[in-house]
């Protein structure tokens, strides 16, 4: 795919309208783009730049800073094994070693069938269920070797498709609702309310003195 779908373009425009400066929508739009192909190709980043009126270098500059935004293709399932302190204390590196053996790939690699990618993650805030991991940022806690194998089998067989969409799909809930009037109108009303409040405060002050 060289470009974003028409549906994604419409959603991107909607996202840009939410912020006082449309540039703020860049990260959300990158997530949106990743949901289509699982990663950000140079062509897609060019399309994003065109939509947002910025340069492709600016898109890459932001995207390349963030762990979740992928400028190289990854598998359908990104398996992120946490090895940070709470998981380390609960056998995370042993789990990571098992994951490498089971998937027959090293950290940072993707299986030849493009099904699984494996990475060592920093703390994912699920420490009471250490050792834990995420698949496409969906949580799995208290993972032992056996549970890991079952998880991989379930994913490969498509048994978890409802819970774990393909890589890149983050929030599946669309925004509904909003101000329904231009932000300028709200600002004008706010200024009016500020004046009225100041008058009330001055009147109360006068009454006291």
């Amino acid at each position: 795919m060289a470009r974003l779908s028409a549906e994604a373009v419409a959603q991107a425009r909607e996202l840009m309208s939410l912020y006082p400066d449309s540039r703020s929508a860049l990260v959300p739009i990158c997530h949106l783009a990743q949901a289509e192909e699982g990663w950000l190709s140079p062509e897609v980043m060019e399309h994003i730049a065109e939509l947002m009126g910025i340069t492709p270098a600016e898109v890459l500059g932001t995207a390349s800073f963030y762990e979740m935004l992928r400028t190289e293709p990854v598998g359908r399932y990104m398996v992120s094994v946490c090895t940070n302190i709470a998981c380390l204390l609960n056998g995370a590196y042993e789990l990571l070693e098992h994951a490498e053996e089971r998937l027959a790939i090293g950290v940072g690699a993707t299986t030849p069938d493009q099904m699984f990618s494996l990475e060592e993650a920093e703390c994912i805030a699920f420490c009471d269920r250490a050792p834990c991991l995420q698949v496409n940022h969906r949580f799995f806690g208290s993972v032992d070797d056996e549970r890991f194998d079952t998880l991989v089998e379930d994913l490969a067989a498509g048994r978890l498709d409802d819970d774990v969409p393909h890589h890149g799909v983050l929030s599946r809930v669309r925004r509904q609702g909003g101000l329904a009037v231009p932000a300028e109108q709200v600002r004008a009303e706010r200024a009016e309310a500020d004046r009225a409040r100041a008058e009330r405060a001055a009147a109360a002050q006068a009454e006291r003195s």
Binding site: L18, Y19, S24, V27, P28, C30, H31, F65, Y66, E67, M68, L69, L170, S171, R175, Q176, G177, G178, L179, A180, V181, A183, V186, E189, R190, A193
Partner: peptide, 28 residues
């Protein structure tokens, strides 16, 4: 919350309006 009138235009008939946006991070 928007549907309920707790956020957005004229919240609970108070005259106070404010827009709230949920913004996703990307890992940093």
């Amino acid at each position: 919350a928007y549907q309920h009138g707790a956020v957005g235009r004229d919240i609970f008939g108070s005259g106070f309006s404010v827009d709230v946006v949920v913004h996703p991070g990307a890992g940093a």
